[in-house]
Structures are given as C-alpha cells and as structure tokens.
C-alpha cells in the first residue's frame, strides 16, 4: 500500500515548569491554607488533624472551601481563591479523589503554585498518576503531590484519622517543610 504523509490531529502545550516550586521551610510563623471541597468528609477530617499539628508547630492555619465552578458561583470561587491565596504562605490543596475533583484540585494547586506559594496537592492512590498527568498538562509537571491510600472516603472516621496521623510526616516531607525540634517533640 502506498505510503502517505498525514497531519497530526493532536495539540499539546510545550511549556512546562518541572520544578516543584519553593519549599515550605520552617512552619513556625507561617500561614498555611487548606483548600477543601464539598465532597470528601475524609479530607475534612485529615485537614483538621494536620491543621492542629501545624498549629502546634507554630503555624497559623486557615481554610477555604470551594463550591461550584461555573456560572456566577464559579466566578465567585475564582475571586475567593485569589483572595485566599493572598492571605497564606503555604498551600495544601485537596482532595484529588475522583475525576473532576482531581481536575479542580490540580487546577487550584497550579493557581497557588503559579502565585509563587509552596504548594502541595493531596491525592488518593488511585488518582496519583492522573494528578501528575493533569499537572503536566497544566504546565507544572513538577507540582508536589502527596498520596493518601485509596479508598479513603469509604472508611470510618477513626480509620481515616489513623491514616492522617500516619501520613503527617510524609506530607511534611512532600511540602519541603520542617519543624523545629522543640515543636516536633510535642
């Protein structure tokens, strides 16, 4: 059969930031912001647990809960996110635990990282590869992603809290954060 030349039907972006961005560094005195959603109670629980630990390490913690991403509500969410990012020094963004919510989590994490904040996205194991794929397609393949077990939201609160406890040191490392010896001992 004759060989022909065909035109490529795909389009891909060529720009990419492979750096994970700045480390969170010492947590004492930092303002750490959690991005929550309206879906995953397990992420509410884990973020509360980690927030307590961040506070114990000398950080101040705030939360922003996103809602709809279209219509006037979507416009409001964009404004709120921008305002929220201006009030924090470090962003912890979750939860990538489904298709669209991984999309929105990574999109918001990229917004935070592009604002220059040390940023870590939180994903469950099943959505880890997907989170990295979307980060790359969003132009930040180096985005920090900390991975929690999957399934997560189907577990009881005490089981989720145990996972949060077990992953605290891991998320600190992913964030590039460190805790002073005194706080760590507490």
């Amino acid at each position: 059969m004759a060989r022909v030349m065909v035109l490529d039907p795909t389009a891909t972006r060529t720009d990419d930031i492979t750096s994970p961005g700045p480390d969170a560094g010492a947590l004492a005195g930092k303002r750490i912001g959690f991005r929550l959603d309206n879906i995953w109670r397990s992420w509410d629980w884990i973020s509360e647990l980690w927030a307590d630990k961040f506070r114990a390490a000398g950080a101040r913690v705030s939360f922003w809960r996103c809602a709809g991403r279209s219509g006037e509500e979507g416009e409001r969410m964009n404004r709120e996110l921008k305002a929220f990012l201006e009030t924090i020094d470090v962003a912890v963004v979750g939860l990538a635990n489904c298709g669209s919510c991984t999309g929105w989590t990574i999109r918001d994490a990229i917004t935070a990282a592009n604002a220059g904040l040390p940023t870590t996205a939180i994903a469950t194991k099943n959505f880890e590869t997907f989170a990295h794929e979307l980060a790359g397609r969003g132009g930040r393949s180096g985005l920090r992603v900390h991975v929690l077990p999957y399934p997560l939201n189907e577990l009881a609160r005490d089981e989720v809290m145990a996972i949060g406890e077990a992953h605290y040191q891991g998320v600190i490392e992913t964030m590039g954060a460190h805790i002073a010896a005194k706080e760590a001992a507490e």
């Binding site: 059969m1 004759a2 060989r3 022909v4 035109l7 490529d8």
Partner: peptide, 23 residues
C-alpha cells in the same frame, strides 16, 4: 503547521496506526 507523519494510505492500516499514535 501540524507535524507530518508517514503512514500507510490504506484505511485499515491507518486506523491501526492512529490507535498506536493515540489518535
């Protein structure tokens, strides 16, 4: 401006090629 690829002009072969390319 799209990149050109060499492929078989036959539809069956091109369909296989497109699957391999992810198109």
């Amino acid at each position: 401006t799209s990149r050109r690829h060499e492929a078989d002009g036959d539809i069956e072969a091109f369909t296989d090629f497109s699957l391999k390319m992810g198109w």
